[in-house]
Nucleic acid binder design. Structure first.
Lengths: 230, 230
DNA sequence: GACCGCACCTGTCCG
DNA sequence: CCGGACAGGTGCGGT
């Protein structure tokens, strides 16, 4: 893969009516979107082959200190509709290394300690602007109407979130699909969600790896920098 | 006029981008659209002469047991903007026959007991799918982008509602114009809205006749089958 | 600025 | 118990 491989996730944009978000100064995106097509809603999304290696990943810790979705993954399943069959809670050691689908090189992007709103009825996850603009850049071409981001948890279970910019609140959010993730993973406020991406794959999917978190978070901050030894 | 007169309301379709609603199996629509043109929003609507006889009608009961908009109608006014001058609550006998514009043959289509949402801030009325597809069929030609349906209350006052299909919720709704009706008629949750159409007129307008409802609805059902003697 | 219109979204309920 | 229908929401643009 070429060095355009900085694209952190597989996505495609769709044209829309809304205004543009603040342009990300990062120029390290673009390209690498395989097989995009327009879906019913008018968003673009992508189909792609099973990842050649692990793409980016999202891990989420909860206070229960156990690894969620620990059973061996069903890697490579990328149908539109995720089966809802793997909300098992098989701890695999809890505070272990939590490398998700094992042995895969990942680059840590950022973490967020989810707020009550993130796991509540609003059905959205606010992505801190700094990280959103760095890792999930939206611009006038990719923006507008939102993106369908493809994620994967550590079992390889696919998750698809709509990602967009809300002009009214000037914030970046994951919306559609997020609530299902919250429910299945039994995410609670205070849990940590960790975004990672595959190092090798240029535009790989983003994995979701659910994992438990230390209840005691690093003191006095909610800022996402809890890169505890990943 | 001819027997294609089964078209229950005067309407015209507009092309749009969204996907089609489930095709109505009813074949008793089509034809009979006079003088359609496309408006600014891209919907098609129709202008037509003042009804030769009463078309379909929509009656709405409220729990106050009085006939709303009982003063003699201003028949034949079909400007785009209805005057807001007739929200009088002159009972004309309350639970009487409520024949609306008197002596006109009407075919009852269906009733709906409006929900809080139907009369609340959402500014829309959900049309139960079964009735929507039977009486207000949208297909690929008439669908897509919505319809402007012309109604008339029992005074002959015209009402124009946008009618469309929401893909995301798989439901049919009246949107634009509905809130004005709710406001003028002082519709409340639990009130009944009755849709009727003229028997004689092939594609007549739909009348809106507001009338009061029995507070006591038929037991244990919310299903619209309260065809109480109309 | 408030409200309306519009297109989404989702949980819940019910057959 | 599963899927469809829909009640109750959202953001957002336009007026």
């Amino acid at each position: 893969m070429s060095s355009r491989g900085k694209l952190p996730f597989s996505h495609a944009a769709a044209s829309s009516s809304s205004s543009s978000p603040p342009l990300s100064s990062s120029s390290q995106h673009k390209g690498g979107v395989p097989l995009t097509y327009q879906n019913q809603r008018g968003w673009l999304e992508n189909k792609f082959e099973p990842p050649r290696e692990e793409g980016s990943s999202l891990r989420c810790y909860n206070r229960a200190s156990q690894l969620m979705n620990a059973y061996p993954g069903n890697n490579g399943r990328y149908g539109d509709d995720a089966d809802e069959d793997d909300d098992v809670r098989r701890g695999d050691g809890g505070s272990g290394n939590g490398s998700g689908s094992v042995g895969v090189e990942r680059e840590h992007m950022f973490d967020k300690v989810v707020t009550p709103s993130d796991v509540g009825k609003l059905n959205r996850l606010v992505i801190p602007k700094q990280h959103a603009e760095k890792y999930f850049p939206l611009d006038s071409s990719t923006n507008e109407k939102g993106l369908l981001l493809n994620f994967e948890d550590r079992n390889g279970k696919p998750w698809r979130f709509r990602y967009s910019y809300w002009n009214s609140s000037q914030s970046y959010v994951m919306t559609k699909g997020w609530s299902r993730f919250v429910k299945e993973k039994k995410l609670d406020a205070g849990d940590t969600v960790s975004f990672q991406r595959g190092v090798a794959s240029g535009h790989g999917i983003i994995n979701i790896v659910s994992r438990s978190s230390p209840l005691l978070l690093p003191k006095h901050h909610h800022a996402p920098s809890i890169t505890s030894g990943w």
